[in-house]
């Protein structure tokens, strides 16, 4: 169904896979936020989200909406623009996470401990640092390194270039 939609509208199987996965992530997030309501069949809902996502991609490629070919029933997703925003947000998260995973163990650990709301004193104990001040400095250095890597990431640079 999604493959047909994308293939009929200037895309390929690879695009279809991406769109399909992103749609599931969006639905997953909606469920998490308690904002998932079905007013039609799940199939129609999924198709409609994928349709919006793919329309967003085609818009970027300057392909006109009027040329769009549908192969299924669809509904209008409320806050249509949010689907596109969610897509970009998820894409950014992928870039952030990829760069985070490339950090050394120590940096990953200290950043996670901090985000788990541990105090610098606790972090210093856990990581075996001399004191809070050292923990604070290390955390800051790790965050800066992560920021630097992200800002040099090609995919991120392209997003920024597109004004996202």
């Amino acid at each position: 169904m999604i493959k047909t939609l994308v293939n009929n509208n200037k895309g390929n199987d690879y695009d279809a896979k991406d769109i399909y996965q992103e749609a599931f992530i969006i639905i997953y997030n909606l469920i998490k936020k308690n904002e998932f309501y079905l007013s039609c069949s799940f199939k129609t809902y999924l198709y409609s989200i994928c349709r919006n996502l793919w329309l967003g991609q085609l818009y970027k490629k300057k392909i006109r909406k009027e040329e769009f070919i549908d192969n299924e029933k669809f509904i209008t997703i409320e806050n249509e623009i949010d689907v596109d925003l969610e897509y970009i947000l998820n894409f950014k998260y992928k870039i952030f996470k990829r760069n985070f995973d490339k950090l050394e163990d120590e940096c990953r650990q200290i950043l996670i401990l901090f985000l788990k709301k541990m105090s610098f004193k606790e972090i210093a104990n856990i990581m075996g640092y001399k004191n809070e001040s050292q923990a604070r400095k290390r955390k800051f250095k790790c965050k800066l390194l992560l920021l630097k890597n992200i800002k040099n990431d090609q995919a991120y640079l392209e997003l920024i270039k597109d004004g996202k």
Binding site: Y28, N90, K94, F96, K97, L115, L147
Partner: peptide
């Protein structure tokens, strides 16, 4: 800064993505 922090602790989404 805020988005990066959020992405780091959003492990469930990445596990879900990996499964997909």
């Amino acid at each position: 800064h805020q988005m990066i922090d959020k992405a780091i602790i959003q492990e469930d989404i990445f596990i879900f993505r990996e499964r997909l």
